[in-house]
Design a binder for these strands. Structure first.
Lengths: 346, 346
DNA sequence: TTGAAAGCGGTACCAC
DNA sequence: GTGGTACCGCTTTCAA
């Protein structure tokens, strides 16, 4: 049986109410007793009991606010699934959620959404947003209020966040290069790289990791072209069509973004080639799965978006229900998993 | 706010105590009221609150018994890690665990261990054991007592278990074949297959899936030899050395078991060949990781053992804390993930 | 500033 | 067979 408030109260000669107030930093308790209590709690190894805490919180539920730029972006479907899974699991432990969805990555738009979440009484925040000074300042301000913030998918290392939950983009690129090396051992490669939006630094990290690893492995390659698809299907398609037309020698494609994959698919189909091009894509969404099923794309490097949504909520709930601090939890880096046709069958 | 016992009691004109007894199938309640209560619970959509249940169970903790044949088998390290993770997470929700470890897969040995777990008062069981009529009977008997059983890693479909948590072995084999196809496109393959113990049907399922998928993909291959390593390093090494000696044309190896991989590694190193053989192994353990790091093994098809341990405990706890039935939960099939050198760096 | 007590949802014990 | 009540750990309100 573990240490309870009652144990601390007894050891300290005060009531449980006082202990609770002290540990929760309510200011109606003298700093002398408060210090004594906190010290004792540490030395006894006190860990709050979630069941007790949740039960007592029932009247005053913990609400977690979430911001996702998920409108018109199928990538977020799985993140939302993960969030809902965590919600279902933690609902009876005193959790409630508020989700705000936006389209795209406009900074002021995101700031306004965060303000709205605060206004709605959120005691913790999970944000998928951009790395921008304004956002970073906002997060620091929120953290100062004792509200923990988890960043999903896109990190802002300098912000005072609880932690980051997302992929290791650099490694994702390395893994793509590793696969390419295995499949093209010895042969020279004529390479096309497709990028997305400049604003998402994860995508350029992927390309860096990819190129670095090709060098480390001494892969003989010629980088024919890098195109920018702007995370848009039509632009991606046009850019790829043009590249394939002007450079028929392209035999290998690395797409470092998940959005715009329909465009790449269409371009690949329209300008077929024998032997087939080797194509590596990122992020598992419906279209990508279909293209892998149809042998248009060979590999997808995935980043377990469902787990990202799930873990973000879980980390925050853990923090709320265990009197955690608002900074300094361990990041949760999801696996970069390689998927092929067989993963998507049945 | 969701439906509570109090709501049902009020709606039914009885006390909360009676409702609790009825829903928990204590027999000190008349079948008439019991039926009425149960019906009402369903129609109101009652779901027990885990916090309340856990708190009340504090005095009479739920203990989950676990049997693993993990002695001298590093594969189980990650499963144990997952179990401990679940334990840490659910401890304050009224969970306790008892772990019995055995060496190997002897049926009577396992039966005795299960009996011991029952004697120790376990209210739920997680077993990693073999598919044998005696075991199956034992599980059915346990289930009849209202004790839920989860099978880890190795399924017994005909037993009345709560569910199975483990890999899809057949698909694991298919994925291995898919990778081989990608890496050896067009070339003819001279193949060695290494199997483990006959008793573990998962391993033969892997080989079936592997060979089937080679056919589906029209891979041109010659199956030079299938060797049995008995899940033992020394036997595996000898068998592989012999195979490589007698059949120097072998250029591709599929190892369908995780145990004995040191033996395969030693054999591969002792009888090097240029160009290097393509080697696909299963299950991520320390030795396998080292061999991948050293470019001796190209791919590992993993089955997330940590998640298996974690989910097994979680499923059982869910069942205990939510008045679940002892059969009929959904299986949890872990991902078969492909790992390469880059996954193991840093 | 502190203590006492009610209450969150559920179970178990003791009366009747 | 059923109702009432104490209790699990914790927070919060009300008194002192």
């Amino acid at each position: 049986m573990s240490v309870t408030l009652k144990d601390i109260a007894r050891a300290c000669g005060v009531s449980v109410g006082t202990v609770s107030r002290a540990l929760n930093d309510k200011r109606e308790v003298s700093s002398a007793t408060s210090d004594k209590i906190k010290q004792l709690a540490v030395s006894l190894g006190y860990v709050p009991n979630r069941a007790g805490r949740a039960l007592s919180a029932q009247k005053n539920v913990w609400v977690i606010g979430i911001l996702l730029p998920s409108i018109n972006s199928p990538f977020f479907d799985d993140i939302k699934r993960g969030i809902n899974q965590a919600y279902a699991e933690l609902q009876d432990l005193g959790l409630d959620i508020v989700l705000i969805e936006r389209e795209g990555w406009n900074v002021d738009d995101h700031l306004a959404a965060v303000t709205e979440l605060q206004a709605r009484g959120c005691r913790a925040l999970a944000l998928c947003t951009v790395n921008h000074p304004k956002i970073s300042d906002k997060i620091n301000e929120i953290a100062a209020d004792g509200v923990p913030v988890v960043l999903i998918n896109n990190n802002i290392p300098e912000a005072k966040r609880l932690c980051f939950v997302g992929p290791d983009y650099y490694r994702s690129g390395q893994i793509a290069a590793g696969m390419l090396d295995k499949c093209r051992r010895g042969q020279e490669i004529n390479l096309l790289i497709v990028m997305g939006l400049k604003i998402h630094e994860g995508h350029s990290l992927r390309v860096q990791g990819f190129l670095k690893e090709l060098d480390v492995r001494h892969v003989k390659y010629r980088l024919v072209k890098i195109v920018e698809g702007m995370d848009n299907d039509i632009i991606t398609q046009q850019a790829c069509m043009q590249a394939f037309g002007e450079n028929p020698e392209i035999d290998t494609v690395y797409m470092a973004t998940g959005s715009g994959v329909s465009g790449l698919g269409a371009a690949l189909i329209a300008s077929r080639k024998e032997p087939k091009r080797l194509v590596i894509a990122c992020d598992e969404i419906y279209t990508t799965r279909e293209l892998v099923r149809g042998d248009i794309i060979d590999f997808v490097i995935c980043q377990d978006p469902q787990m990202q949504g799930y873990q973000a909520i879980k980390k925050l709930h853990e923090c709320l229900s265990r009197q955690g601090l608002t900074t300094g939890a361990a990041d949760y880096i999801v696996e970069s998993s390689i998927k092929i046709k067989n993963h998507f069958e049945r």
